[in-house]
């Protein structure tokens, strides 16, 4: 029984996966029985009553009330039972407990990106702690996508201009596959992500340090990624044009004049201060609108941003 299930279905890795599989298997055995009945009768009648002589008259069978009631009512009762079974499990799976960990998911051709409660972000890889209810709050920036984790037995269309949620409690640590299941164009089949279900300690460590890849990247590359992913790019350009904030181009080593009239030569310490405490020294001609990134950027990411700005001569 279990080996049949493992042959037909992916690994069971969430709390409600077993419920779905039980109904799946129930329907499988039930429909198999009906199929065997239909196929057997079809083939057996076709063979047994095959034409042996031309031009014979056959019996006149037009009705059999008892038989007709049986084959109407039994399937009706069975499908109504299956309806309630399926609906109950569906309803149970779609409600998130109050203590669920909320993670924001954004779909955009052809990537998934994730934002955690502490401000950490990741692309194409989602990290969650094991045995903790997860609530994904999802939206799309362009067309329809669908977030599908086969081993968790969850799937939800992701819709532009709207938040939809997806709930599951992962029970098996390790790597799981995420697909996009709603057709979205050229790289639809490449719009995948890795779901890493970690122990709580490993999850906390990941939040602290980030992906191992961060440590392998060149600092300036990492800085460019931070500039894009953390939204620096919405105010700070890299080509010298003025935005909400000063452009990064050529700013390193330049003497900046502040709103209070003082000046400073832009160096590593000034950039670091501007990220963590942006209101301290606001460049003349700009409004003090930048939020603090205290606690939202890792040390290595701040270093990356500094390296990136240094490169933008």
């Amino acid at each position: 029984m279990n080996s049949l299930r493992d042959w037909m279905m992916p690994m069971q890795a969430s709390e409600h996966a077993a419920k779905i599989d039980n109904l799946y298997l129930f329907i499988f055995w039930l429909t198999l029985a009906f199929f065997i009945l239909i196929a057997y009768l079809t083939v057996a009648f076709a063979w047994k009553y095959r034409r042996k002589k031309e031009g014979v008259l056959t019996v006149n069978l037009q009705h059999n009330l008892a038989l007709e009631l049986v084959w109407s009512i039994i399937p009706l009762i069975l499908v109504i039972g299956i309806f309630f079974w399926g609906f109950n499990d569906y309803a149970a799976a779609s409600v998130a407990p109050n203590d669920a960990l909320e993670i924001h998911v954004t779909g955009k051709k052809w990537n998934w990106s994730f934002e955690y409660p502490d401000g950490t972000r990741s692309i194409r890889s989602l990290h969650v702690p094991v045995n903790k209810p997860i609530r994904l709050i999802m939206t799309s920036e362009d067309v329809l996508h669908a977030f599908f984790i086969p081993s968790m037995r969850v799937k939800q269309d992701v819709i532009p201009g709207r938040y939809v949620d997806l709930n599951f409690t992962p029970t098996v640590a390790g790597r799981h596959q995420v697909f996009c299941a709603e057709y979205c164009g050229r790289d639809h089949s490449g719009m995948m992500a890795d779901l890493f279900v970690d122990t709580p300690a490993k999850y906390a460590e990941w939040l602290e340090k980030g992906d191992e890849e961060l440590y392998k990247m060149k600092p300036a590359e990492l800085g460019k990624m931070v500039w894009e992913m953390k939204g620096c790019n919405s105010c700070h350009t890299i080509d010298g044009t003025k935005g909400e904030g000063p452009s990064f181009k050529g700013i390193f080593g330049k003497t900046e004049k502040f709103r209070d009239g003082s000046t400073i030569v832009v160096d590593e310490n000034y950039i670091r201060e501007s990220i963590l405490n942006p209101q301290a020294k606001v460049v003349a001609g700009f409004e003090p609108v930048m939020p603090t990134f205290q606690g939202l950027l890792r040390e290595i990411e701040i270093k990356g941003v500094i390296a990136y700005i240094k490169e933008l001569k």
């Binding site: 409600h16 779905i20 799976a93 969850v154």
Partner: peptide, 12 residues
């Protein structure tokens, strides 16, 4: 079609 009509199974 019965598999697909059952809501919880259809999600998968």
């Amino acid at each position: 079609g019965i598999f697909l009509g059952a809501m919880s199974v259809d999600i998968h």
